[in-house]
């Protein structure tokens, strides 16, 4: 078990006139090597939830919270370990770049872990290779890069710490289709190469449906749905009720079924639909 959280509550600004309950009794468990996507509206508690995973936020109350073997419910949790095991890529991570060169910026994480210099450099180069940033850019200033390149360098800055769990908060927001595909492929490679657990928040539902093993839907600070990708996306009406958009394939199936066709609602990926319609297995 990679992550196990029971009855997590979090209140922003308790005891002030602005206090808001951001999370209410959320249970959240993730197996090793799972690829989980979290969906939900702005303000549904997605980001608040993931920021608990490496101790950036402290729960207002919680019954159990184990992350990669670190107990986060104790008074002084082992932050150093948990920050190494759980890598966190924030929204628009390119805003965290600060060093003079790309290589130095990517080395920041492993350096903070206290690794020897050769190891730091090795890891930084590995991570940059993984995200597809060539050697010619190693000594460039991160501020000179293009938007997509900056994003990849920033992600490399987290991957260089070799986290067991990689948490990404809308990693493909604001990128062009090519940039999106590149980032998603980087995440997929990291997932497969290190059997890493991936937890991704995203609004790009058509991308989510293709990559995720499991979907968690947050709604008003509570967990509304949780299950295998096909299971969650087969509940068309429930998703629409929660104000979420259906993936294009599900939308098509949903509307055809409204017209009286009988297509299995578990079809949510384009390959499955092609196979169903053509009757040909790929």
């Amino acid at each position: 078990m990679s992550i196990s959280i029971k009855k997590l509550n979090y209140v922003y600004d308790p005891e002030s006139p602005f206090s808001v309950a951001a999370l209410e009794d959320v249970d959240f468990s993730v197996q090793d090597g799972e690829y989980v996507c979290i969906l939900g509206h702005t303000g549904s508690g997605k980001s608040t939830l993931v920021q608990h995973l490496n101790g950036l936020l402290k729960p207002t109350s919680v019954e159990e919270m184990l992350v990669e073997g670190v107990d986060l419910t104790v008074k002084k949790p082992d932050m150093k370990t948990v920050r190494q095991k759980v890598g966190m890529v924030f929204q628009y991570p390119e805003y965290q770049l600060f060093e003079e060169t790309v290589l130095e910026d990517v080395s920041f994480g492993p350096k903070n872990m206290g690794l020897p210099n050769e190891e730091v450099e090795k890891r930084a180069k590995e991570a940059l290779a993984l995200v597809g940033v060539g050697e010619e850019l190693f000594s460039a200033s991160p501020f000179e890069l293009s938007g997509g390149q900056k994003r990849r360098v920033a992600i490399a800055g987290v991957l260089s710490m070799k986290p067991k769990v990689l948490v990404l908060d809308e990693p493909i927001a604001g990128l062009d289709p090519l940039g999106k595909a590149e980032i998603l492929s980087v995440i997929d490679q990291y997932h497969k190469k290190y059997n890493a657990t991936i937890i991704m928040i995203s609004h790009n539902i058509d991308d989510v449906v293709e990559v995720a093993d499991r979907i968690v839907v947050m709604h008003k600070g509570r967990k509304a749905l949780d299950g295998k990708t096909e299971e969650v996306f087969s509940q068309h009406e429930r998703l629409l009720e929660l104000g979420l958009e259906l993936p294009s394939v599900c939308e098509l199936v949903y509307r055809l079924n409204l017209l009286g066709k009988n297509i299995p609602t578990t079809i949510c990926r384009i390959d499955d639909l092609v196979q169903f319609v053509s009757g040909v297995k790929k």
């Binding site: 920021q51 490496n54 950036l56 150093k80 920050r83 190494q84 759980v86 890598g87 966190m88 924030f90 991570p93 805003y95 965290q96 600060f98 920041f108 994480g109 350096k111 903070n112 872990m113 800055g157 987290v158 710490m161």
Partner: peptide, 26 residues
């Protein structure tokens, strides 16, 4: 940004002065 850099292991409130200055720069 503080959260992003803490996630990369920066420590703002403890440790050696040089390390803290480095974190502030970040």
């Amino acid at each position: 940004i503080m959260k992003a850099q803490s996630a990369r292991g920066a420590v703002f409130d403890q440790g050696k002065l040089t390390k803290r200055v480095k974190a502030i720069v970040a």
